[in-house]
Each structure stands twice: as C-alpha cells, then as structure tokens.
Design a protein around this nucleic acid. Structure first.
Length: 474
RNA sequence: GGCUGAGUGGCAGAGUGGUCAUGCAGCGGUUUGCAAAACCGUGUACGUCGGUUCAAUUCCGGCCUCAGCCUCCA
C-alpha cells in the first residue's frame, strides 16, 4: 500500500485515487527567464520518481507540469537583455528540456503555458468576480479577497491575524487585505498584455496554476506538487481561488519537496548562491546528479557539495561495476534447479524491500540501499565464478534501477564514457593495453606499470581481471 | 512574534521501543607480479535535561541549536 505524506493533513496517508486506477497529478514547473538550477532539478527528478513509481504500480497517470512564460521577472529580464519575450522564453524552455532530458526526467503528459491559457484564466477570474471573491482595485487590477474564503491558511497552517504582512515589503494600499493577491494585472505602457473584460493586462502568478490544473485535470484531482517555498502563498492561494471558483474540493494530496542547500542555506535565485544544472553537468555525469538527488528523502533538505557529488559518483560506479560483464541472455540453465529457486527467492526479497521503501512515501535512500545489497550479492557470485546465477540478479538490479531512472545505460558506456574529452580514443587505450599485456607476458613489470601509470594520469584506470584487462574513466 | 521541519558514527543519509541500514572515507585480511576492482572483518552514532517503560536514539515534556515560510523563489 502506497502512503504519501500530505502537507494538508501533515501526515502520511494511504493513497487512494479519486478514480480507481488513475492518478491525476499537477506540478508547478519553471518560470522560464533563466537556466534551471539544482533546486529545479530536484523538483523535476523527485516528481519524475513519483510518476515512475505510480506507473510501476499500474496506475494510469496523467502528469501535468506547467510553464510560466509570462510574469514580472520575465518582463524585467527581457528589458535588461533587450530581447523580446517570446524569444527569451523559447530559449529557456529549450534549455530546460536539455537539462531535464539529460537528467533522465520523463516529459510530462501535458505541459500548459500561461500565455496559451489566457481564456481559461480570464474565465476563472470572471467566476471569482461573479461570486464576489474578487474585486477591482483603484489600479484596475483584479484582486482576490482572501477573507471571503473560509479555509484560507489550511495548507500552510497560517492564521491571518498572526501573519506579518507588510513587515518586509510595503503593502499595496489599494488592497482590502494586505494578503489579497492579484488575479489580473492591468498592463502598464509597453508591457505585454491580453484583452479582458477588465481591460488589457496579464494573469497574476497564482491564477494561472489554478486555471491550468483544473483545465487539464478537472476541478478536483489527486496530487499537486512543488517546492516547499510554494506552500505559502502560492499553493494556499491556488486552493482559495480554485475552491471558491469551482465550489469543489481542489486537491486531495499536496506534496512538497525540500530545498537544496549550500552550506546550510537555501539555494535560491534571490540569494544568488545557486549552481545551474548545466554547470554541474560539465563536471558530473547526469546520472550521478540524479543519484545524488535521490540519496536524500524528498522532503529532507539536500546539501549540495563537491564532496557529496564525488561520493555519489563513486556509488554509481560501484553499481555499474557490479553490472559490468554480466550475460544479458536468459540461458542460466547450467546450474541445478535448487540454486535457481534459492536465487529467485533472493531476488523476490530484494524486490519486496525495494517496493516497501518506495511505497513508504517514496523513501529513495532506503530503496537505493537495496540496490547496493543486490550489487554485493552479484559481486559475490561473480567472485565465485557463478556468473550465470548473477545474471538474473543483474536484471533485477537494472529493473529496480529503472523505477528510479537509474542504471539503464550500458555499463561499459557508463564506465568508459561516451564522448571523451580525454586526449585518448578507445582504440588508443586498447592499443596501450595490448602493449602492456605483452610486457606483462614477458614479466616486464616496469613497462607494464609505466603504461598503467601513464594512462592513470590521463584519467584511465586499468583493472586486470581473470578475463583480461578492462579500463574505465576515473 | 506565528507557523513548519530538523538535530544520527570522519562525511552523507535512512530507520527502529530490545542483534544489521546503505554509500563514501579509514583500518585489518583474502585476491593480485604490484595495483585497481571485488569479497570478508572492523568502529563506545543517535543535540540536551527530565519522564514513561523491564528496556528509549526510537514514545512524552522542557531546553538549546539550525533551517524554511510569513515579499518573488522549486
């Protein structure tokens, strides 16, 4: 039974979809005015895991992740660079795909954009006005009146009278309540705008998610996710808007992932202490980054450091090393029946533990631990020259890895790297190995060691095994 | 001030009312021409003070420290 921690109730709950067998999931995606940083990568990977796991349980999942392609920051950035907005957003959308594809993040099923959802947004704003949940300000903005919504604060656990609105930022005097927020923003001269019953303008940030999610998934759907920082006010506002507009409950389960930190501080745009995904990918293989993200539970903070990335790299190498050279075929008929039975039992045990971990609110660290135990089992069998028995365990390992989006590469390709920045081609390396092999045959250890050292200096590690010498990149 | 969440061995990071996480690093061993990889073994870990209990890192309470939200942020 899958349990998920629900921010709304602050506890783990057994997951039951609204419609049996189907899961409708919405995640707040990127605002595309800059490259993805590691924090974005975390949301993407975390919900990728959620989707993969739900699917592996047999649910038919509709995964919607929006793109915010119009807002203040985008306008500001475009003004700074002198680019037009479509050009700017197209560039960063493209960049986002490059980053997420590299990280093995499956594309969402639907990817609505704010600028393509204006009719739905306008319709929802109109509904809110009709139902008196919204009002028009002196600035001709349309604002949502939070005091009219009874459940305001239920997600974030905040009480209106205890919030320190205006403590850090000047409150807009035209608002009835300091926390009222803009649904429709009247256009200033030179700003991009769309026509509406209230004049030209653009959608406020919160309304787009309400409009797009309900439009794609219906008024009431199963799971809504995003980063912790969106809990308030963004998701609180989404609930208020959606439930007052539709008159129906909005979302059953709210999932929020923890932050990526650097030196125990939140990684964020405003603090400027972020690394972009592409920066990190210049130094580490995508799978290492993905693994790194999964080493901590999705709700815990994830501290980013080179040391941790290096450890992640070692760990992934260990898993691929275990998979290396295992026969792919199913012809494990050589061993006696009994050992096969035993082996199957072992496999089932691993699988069961893996699933138990994942079903417990997507406990990826514990699931990963199972992978390592499986790897150890494989290595032991290999040491005992029982490769044919190890093969099914290898398939099991890859199969479980698949649910995490890991271990799907050819081990050789992973370990040796595809395109090498190294100054040596694979053929050259093979040549040096042959050279060294000859030296070894003649017991010329000095030459053999020299070749090995030289290659090591170029980032190539040689390993002499029973079946000859293999190599991999550092 | 209000509301969340967290404090685990050298590092990272799960988990549990009473022998085991796991990865990296360390140490000893097996293997190897030597290595590497692998395997085996190994470490007085659970912020602090009380309470409940036969037994608490795990449950309860106080305290301390840290992070996040209360502006935009994944």
């Amino acid at each position: 039974m899958l349990t998920i921690y629900n921010t709304l109730t602050k506890q783990k709950e057994p997951f039951t979809p609204i419609e049996p067998g189907k899961v409708r999931l919405y995640v707040c995606g990127m605002t595309v005015y800059d490259y993805c940083h590691v924090g974005h990568a975390r949301v993407m990977v975390v919900f990728d895991i959620v989707v993969r796991y739900l699917r592996s349980l047999g649910f038919s999942v509709t995964y919607v992740r929006n793109i915010t392609d119009i807002d203040d920051k985008i306008i500001q950035r475009a003004n700074e660079t002198g680019e037009d907005i479509e050009h700017l957003t197209a560039h960063f959308i493209q960049a986002m795909y490059e980053d997420t594809d590299a990280l093995g993040v499956l594309r969402p099923d639907v990817e609505p954009r704010a600028t393509q959802s204006i009719p739905e947004i306008v319709a929802m704003v109109q509904q809110l006005l009709d139902k008196s949940y919204a009002y028009i300000t002196d600035n001709s903005d349309v604002c949502y009146a939070i005091q009219h919504f009874e459940g305001y604060g239920k997600l974030s656990g905040k009480h209106l009278d205890e919030l320190r609105a205006g403590e850090r930022v000047e409150v807009d005097k035209s608002k009835q309540h300091p926390l009222d927020f803009v649904l429709w923003k009247a256009a200033k001269p030179g700003e991009p705008s769309w026509d509406s019953p209230w004049g030209p303008g653009r959608p406020g940030w919160h309304i787009e998610c309400s409009a797009m999610s309900t439009n794609c998934l219906g008024n009431h759907f199963d799971i809504h996710g995003g980063g912790m920082d969106l809990q308030f006010p963004h998701h609180e506002n989404e609930i208020a808007q959606s439930e007052s507009a539709t008159g129906q409950p909005f979302v059953n389960v709210w999932m929020h992932n923890g932050f990526v930190r650097i030196n125990d501080e939140k990684m964020s745009k405003s603090l400027g202490n972020f690394f972009t995904v592409r920066e990190v990918l210049e130094r580490y293989q995508p799978e290492v980054v993905r693994y790194f993200i999964l080493t901590s539970h999705y709700r815990s903070p994830l501290n980013y450091s080179d040391q941790d990335l290096d450890a992640a790299k070692q760990a992934v190498t260990r898993l691929y090393t275990a998979l290396r050279g295992l026969p792919d075929t199913d012809e494990n008929l050589t061993k006696e029946e009994s050992s096969q039975l035993e082996e199957r039992q072992i496999r089932e045990d691993f699988s069961q533990r893996f699933h138990a971990a994942m079903a417990d609110d997507f406990n990826t660290p514990e699931a990963l631990a199972v992978l390592f135990e499986l790897a150890r089992e494989i290595n032991k069998l290999r040491d005992n020259h029982a490769l044919s028995q190890a093969a099914p365990l290898g398939r099991e390992l890859r199969g479980l890895g698949d649910m995490l989006g890991l271990l799907q590469a050819d081990p050789e390709v992973y370990l040796q790297g595809t395109e090498t920045k190294a100054d040596l081609s694979a053929t050259e390396i093979e040549q040096r190995i042959a050279e060294r092999q000859a030296a070894r045959k003649g017991r010329d250890w000095a030459t053999a060691d020299r070749v090995r050292t030289e290659l090591k200096e170029k980032g190539i590690i040689l390993e002499d095994g029973a079946q000859g010498t293999t190599w991999r990149k550092v």
